[in-house]
Amino acid sequence: MSAQPVEKTLYLADEAATVAAGEVLGQACIDAGMAAGLVIFLGGQLGAGKTTFSRGVLRAFGHYGAVKSPTYTLVEPYEFTDFRVYHFDLYRLGDAEELEYMGVRDYFGRGSLSLVEWSERGVGVLPAPDLRLALQLQGAGRELKLIAESDAGASVLAGAHFAEN
């Protein structure tokens, strides 16, 4: 990995701050070019704000409609002019091999950003993430930890200019 920042921790006071942080990260993904595709794992307990954060990422791409967690469909695609964003929620996945049957490998690649909630349920099938995010409830807000796990992830993280708390 490069000498770029590989970890950031933020305190997000409320839902609006969570959406705003997602939007900052989404813009950093766009600015990084995403030519080779990016994979982001979103971790945290139920209700920690993973889908709320994803809504912010999608806003950076220009999507202002509803963003629901694709718990039953496993993936919700969002098509944009130059990019595709895939929002995965693997919470109800019974076995990681089920991902193979839905052709999951086709979702990861050039010009795509994949946001994966409950990624631990897809171990052995999912590609390695470029960024790993962990949301944890903390008081009235939440703590967001971002960890770069590739050079592309470090580049995105370096370009993400989050508001100071």
Score class of each variant (00 low, 15 high):
Glu149Arg: 13
Leu126Ser: 10
Phe83Pro: 01
Leu93Tyr: 11
Thr81Glu: 14
Leu135His: 07
Leu131Gly: 09
Val39Ala: 13
Asp106Glu: 15
Lys68Gly: 09
Val39Tyr: 02
Gly62Trp: 01
Tyr72His: 04
Ser69Trp: 06
Val67Gln: 05
Arg142Lys: 00
Gly49Leu: 03
Val125Leu: 07
Asp31Gln: 13
Ala66Met: 07
Met34Pro: 05
Glu117Cys: 05
Ser155His: 12
Gly65Glu: 04
Gln27Trp: 03
Gly109Thr: 07
Leu99Arg: 10
Gln136His: 03
Ser114Asn: 14
Tyr72Asn: 02
Ala134Cys: 08
Val104Trp: 11
Arg132Leu: 09
Gly109Tyr: 04
Ser112Asn: 13
Leu99Gly: 13
Leu90Cys: 09
Arg92Glu: 03
Arg92Lys: 09
Tyr101Lys: 13
Glu143Gly: 01
Ala140Asp: 15
Val24Gln: 13
Val67Ser: 08
Asp82Lys: 15
Cys29Arg: 07
Ala96Tyr: 08
Asp89Lys: 11
Gly103Phe: 12
Val24Arg: 15
Ala20Phe: 00
Val104Phe: 12
Thr51Leu: 00
Ala48Cys: 04
Arg132Thr: 12
Gln45His: 02
Tyr91Thr: 09
Cys29His: 07
Glu143His: 03
Ala20Thr: 04
Ser69Glu: 06
Ala66Glu: 11
Asp82Gln: 15
Pro77Thr: 11
Ser69Gly: 10
Val85Lys: 10
Val75Ile: 13
Leu42Val: 08
Arg55Met: 02
Phe53Ala: 00
Leu58Gln: 11
Ser112Tyr: 03
Gly124Cys: 03
Arg121Thr: 08
Leu146Lys: 06
Arg142Pro: 00
Tyr86Arg: 06
Ala28His: 06
Phe41Met: 00
Gly65Ala: 12
Lys145Arg: 15
Ile30Arg: 15
Ala66Arg: 14
Arg110Val: 05
Phe80Lys: 14
Phe41Pro: 00
Arg92Pro: 04
Gly124Ser: 05
Gln136Glu: 14
Ala148Met: 11
Ser155Thr: 14
Ala21Ser: 11
Glu117Tyr: 02
Glu98Ala: 14
Tyr101Ile: 08
Leu90Ala: 10
Lys50Ile: 02
Arg132Ala: 12
Glu97Trp: 02
Ala35Arg: 14
Glu97Asn: 12
Val85Gly: 10
Glu97Gln: 13
Thr81Gly: 10
Gly47Asp: 05
Leu144Ser: 02
Tyr64Val: 03
Thr71Leu: 03
Lys68Ile: 00
Phe53Thr: 00
Leu135Cys: 06
Glu117Met: 06
Val116Glu: 11
His87Gly: 10
Thr81Tyr: 11
Arg142Ser: 01
Lys145Ser: 09
Val75Thr: 11
Tyr101Thr: 11
Ala35Ser: 14
Glu76Tyr: 08
Tyr72Gly: 04
Gly44Asp: 05
Phe80Asn: 12
Gly37Trp: 12
Leu144Val: 04
Ala20Asn: 00
Ile30Val: 15
Lys145Thr: 15
